[in-house]
Design a protein around this nucleic acid. Sequence first.
DNA 1: GCGACAG
DNA 2: ATCTTGTCGC
Length: 233
Amino acid sequence: MDSIDIEGIPDIRNYVPRSVKEAFAIQRALKERVSLENSFESISLIAGVDLAILKERKQLVCGIILFEFPELSIIDKVYSIVDEKFPYIPGLLSFREGPAIIEAYGKLEVKPDILILDGQGIAHPRGFGIACHIGVILDIPTIGVGKKKLYGTFDELGMVPGRYSPLYSKQGDTIGAVLRTKKNTKPVFVSPGHKIDLPSALEVVTECARGYRVPEPTRQADKYVAELKKEFL
DNA sequence: GCGACAG
DNA sequence: ATCTTGTCGC
């Protein structure tokens, strides 16, 4: 039961692991499909995602907002509400939030060139954070932007916005970067998810930093989901 | 056995 | 994520 036969899973998009061991196996298998090369030619559309919990209903609300890039003007908004089927376990976030994100994404009539997710990309214990997971399953470029570190080590960075410090794996590989998006404010953790390299991911996130710590697409999605939460409480 | 630990 | 008052910096 060490290695999983991914091909044998009917709907990997909504598959719920029966154990942590199985979840680990799925991540190790899907990790092989991650690409760290830019697959896009230019970026004219970008989207941000965020989720909230409807505790009473035991459901998750996911909101995705599509923006024109680099203007960052809103073009569309979609959302999904899904039953909570997997708990929050550090390192296995995608199994909890993935289904809701994928369903909402499917409702977008126009797809973005890049999707920014809350959480890590390859800066993960097994190199397969939620940004990688969503990117591989949807086969689209994704970037992971976390507010906290999950994995890796780094040196302190300057206070000037735009400054960053590489995130290193235990083996010494650069797996992401800690980016200062705002003065005198804690940095964010940026790492490639799929079909994009670190330099590009950093450029995009830096470009999306508009006066706040969290990049605009994510910040807007955050507000959107907060409203949805009230509406569906 | 003791820390670390995305949202 | 969520709860939750006052408080510090721009």
